[in-house]
């Protein structure tokens, strides 16, 4: 397994929001992590990338990253595309991209990677010297993905890439994610948009209130009524859920 997370617990302050979850990604695979708002998805992602204190193990290719700082994890190749894009607003597109390729492992190949990014997102090349804040939401999302690509991730953690985008851009973002997957990149996709997520993923985990309540091949989950229940919360009233379905 390329990435293996074991018994991850994390939270904000004294409040634990993720209560010991374990999951794994094989090299070259794409794994989805889905769940309703407040299920703890973002907390879990921030924790594995080192932005939140946590317990448990995060193994990247057998090496435990749990005690590393966030920047060392990124340098090791576990890099996120943050929720809400979080591009560096006042900096140019070029500087945003280069910000992820400053460390030794990737510095030498920055130019080639840049070409790959431009190949994937021609629009970014057109806007190279523009400040990131002047880009539209969709373009910012492309920049955020491109920036992470610049760090040559071994595992890319995509946190809610469709959030706050117009439907047209949502299609575009998922098309790109599909294309990245074709290149052999290992992707952990956290998404509210269940259908898109499951259509692209090989395997998926369903998170509910900080626990993994369901997992399986994405194609199976796609037709599993329990996934829908996890979102619309009718799991406590199965009879009613049945009624609703009819």
């Amino acid at each position: 397994m390329l990435l293996e997370v074991r018994d991850l617990r994390t939270g904000y302050g004294a409040v634990e929001v993720v209560h010991g979850i374990s999951f794994e990604l094989a090299a070259g695979s794409m794994v989805g992590l889905i769940g309703a708002n407040g299920a703890g998805k973002s907390g879990a992602m921030h924790a594995i990338c080192g932005l939140l204190r946590h317990t448990g193990a995060v193994l990247l290719d057998g090496q435990d990253l749990a005690r590393m700082s966030a920047h060392d994890r990124a340098r090791a190749g576990l890099i996120m595309v943050p929720e809400g894009r979080r591009v560096f607003p006042g900096m140019s597109v070029r500087d945003n991209l280069l910000s992820a390729s400053l460390h030794r492992r990737v510095r030498g190949r920055a130019q080639q990677t840049l070409d790959t990014v431009f190949h994937t997102f021609p629009r970014l090349q057109e806007r190279l010297n523009q400040a990131a804040e002047t880009l539209s939401g969709g373009e910012q999302q492309m920049l955020a993905i491109g920036r992470t690509m610049m760090g040559q991730p071994r595992v890319m953690v995509l946190d809610e890439p469709s959030l706050g985008l117009s439907p047209l851009f949502v299609q575009e973002v998922f098309r790109v994610i599909g294309a990245l997957r074709e290149t052999g990149l290992t992707i952990l996709l956290v998404e509210q948009n269940v259908h898109h997520c499951l259509e692209l993923s090989d395997y998926a985990y369903v998170l509910e209130q900080g626990h993994i309540v369901l997992q399986g091949a994405a194609s199976d989950l796609l037709v599993d009524p329990r996934v829908r229940a996890a979102y619309l919360g009718t799991s406590n009233q199965p009879s009613e859920a049945e009624e609703v379905r009819q």
Partner: peptide, 13 residues
């Protein structure tokens, strides 16, 4: 601009 995200991009802030 954004310290946590800079960290997540591999920058020793």
């Amino acid at each position: 601009a954004d310290r946590p995200i800079a960290e997540a991009m591999g920058i020793n802030t």
